[in-house]
C-alpha cells in the first residue's frame, strides 16, 4: 500500500507501524465519575467495519509523525491522510 503522507507525499506502508482505531485518540478523562467504564470501552471496544475505517499509523522509518489514515478495509483504498496531532487538537485534546 501507499500512504500519501500529508508532508512527505506518497510513501510505502512498509515504513509505517500500525496501531489501530483512531478512536484511541479519544482517551477518557481519568477524573470522570464513570472513568473506569469509559476506559474499559476506550481500550476494549472497537468497531471492526468492512469498509471505511479511521486508523492510526506511525511513520517509524520516516519523520515519526503519527497519522490518521482513512482506509477502506475491503479495497485498501486510502481516502484521506491527516496528521494525528491536528486530528487530536480538532477533537479537543490539549494537555
Amino acid at each position: 500500500m501507499i500512504i500519501n503522507h500529508p508532508i512527505l507525499g506518497p510513501r510505502d506502508f512498509q515504513e509505517f507501524t500500525y496501531l489501530g482505531d483512531a478512536s484511541l485518540i479519544d482517551r477518557p478523562d481519568w477524573q470522570a465519575d464513570n472513568a473506569a467504564d469509559q476506559f474499559h470501552d476506550y481500550l476494549y471496544l472497537r468497531d471492526n467495519p468492512a469498509g471505511e475505517h479511521r486508523e492510526l499509523w506511525f511513520h517509524e522509518q520516516g519523520d515519526r509523525s503519527w497519522l490518521v489514515v482513512t482506509r477502506n478495509t475491503v479495497t485498501h483504498e486510502i481516502l484521506n491522510v491527516e496528521l494525528a496531532r491536528d486530528v487530536a487538537r480538532a477533537r479537543g485534546r490539549s494537555k
Binding site: L19, L24, L56, F58, R64, S65, L83, R85, R93
Partner: peptide, 19 residues
C-alpha cells in the same frame, strides 16, 4: 527502546498535543 519511544510519541502527538 523502540516501543517506549513510539508510545511516548503517541502520547505527545495524539493524547497531549499541546504539551
Amino acid at each position: 527502546a523502540v516501543l517506549v519511544y513510539r508510545n511516548m510519541e503517541f502520547a505527545r502527538q495524539c493524547l497531549f498535543p499541546d504539551m
